[in-house]
């Protein structure tokens, strides 16, 4: 569905050139939840922005549903880490969710149905007339997720969506993502720096290296589909997987790892 092949990106040119993404290859298949995890500063956001068509990478092939990504493709929605900036403060919860649907030319009944269905899915019924500033951070991110759902994307990109909420809310929102995935059979690409989160949510984890970034490995997560914040995280298999991901991030096994200068000295 989404194919990334030998993606590279260099910021700047000449002597100031900075190779951020060295060689990224992976794919996301329909109905999958793939999480991308890597050390901070490894270019996760750059990677996601190129896939969303918000910026062009300097090299590599990106296709979505067989078409090359040159601008934001149809059928894609994105949930940002900064929900505060991403929600429109002058619009009520309901109007925020309705925002992207206007240009789709839906009938009024269709529109209303989509909006209410999405708000039900994220547990925000009864909050339609509130404004973003009247909601907690977790609830604001729920609005952003509802808005993305109402748009009915074929793929949902999530850029460290829960990095700015407290731990308890974070767990609730992770479970919300899993329930939404099941309910709408949604394909999701989830970027995070949290190893537990990446394993808990995913069918597959793409592990990235430090910059210049390459894919260290892609790990299948053979945990059951019914995941639970307590039981799944106690499962020896989960513990083994999170350990493996952590080790891969720290000590990537690859021939073309350039040894940082500091380590040589």
């Amino acid at each position: 569905m989404l194919n990334i092949e030998h993606l590279t990106h260099t910021y700047g040119t000449g002597a100031k050139a900075h190779l951020a993404l060295k060689d990224i290859t992976f794919a996301v298949e329909p109905g999958e939840l793939v999480s991308i995890v890597g050390p901070s500063g490894c270019g996760k956001t750059t990677l996601l922005r190129t896939m969303a068509g918000l910026m062009r990478p300097t090299g590599g092939d990106l296709t979505f549903l067989g078409n090359e990504i040159t601008s934001v493709p149809e059928g894609l929605a994105m949930v940002f880490q900064d929900y505060r900036g991403s929600l429109f403060p002058w619009l009520s919860v309901e109007s925020n969710v309705r925002f992207p649907l206007k240009r789709l030319g839906l009938s009024k009944a269709d529109l209303d149905a989509r909006v209410s269905e999405s708000l039900v899915a994220v547990g925000l019924t009864g909050f339609e007339d509130r404004f973003p500033f009247q909601l907690s951070g977790g609830m604001q991110q729920r609005v952003a997720i509802a808005r993305a759902l109402a748009y009915r994307p074929k793929i949902l990109l999530m850029d460290e969506p829960f990095a700015s909420v407290d731990a308890q809310t974070r767990e609730d929102l992770e479970d919300l993502v899993l329930s939404v995935k099941k309910k709408f059979n949604m394909t999701i690409l989830f970027v995070t720096h949290d190893i537990d989160e990446s394993v808990y949510l995913a069918d597959r984890v793409v592990v990235l290296s430090k910059p210049p970034t390459f894919v260290v490995t892609t790990l299948d997560i053979p945990l059951s589909d019914n995941r639970d914040q307590i039981e799944t995280k106690e499962d020896p298999e989960f513990i083994r997987l999170r350990g493996e991901v952590a080790r891969l991030i720290r000590h990537p096994k690859s021939d073309d790892v350039t040894i940082p200068v500091a380590d040589v000295a």
Partner: peptide, 9 residues
């Protein structure tokens, strides 16, 4: 971010 959000839609 608000402008990028609108762009992704």
């Amino acid at each position: 971010v608000a402008k990028e959000t609108a762009r992704t839609f």
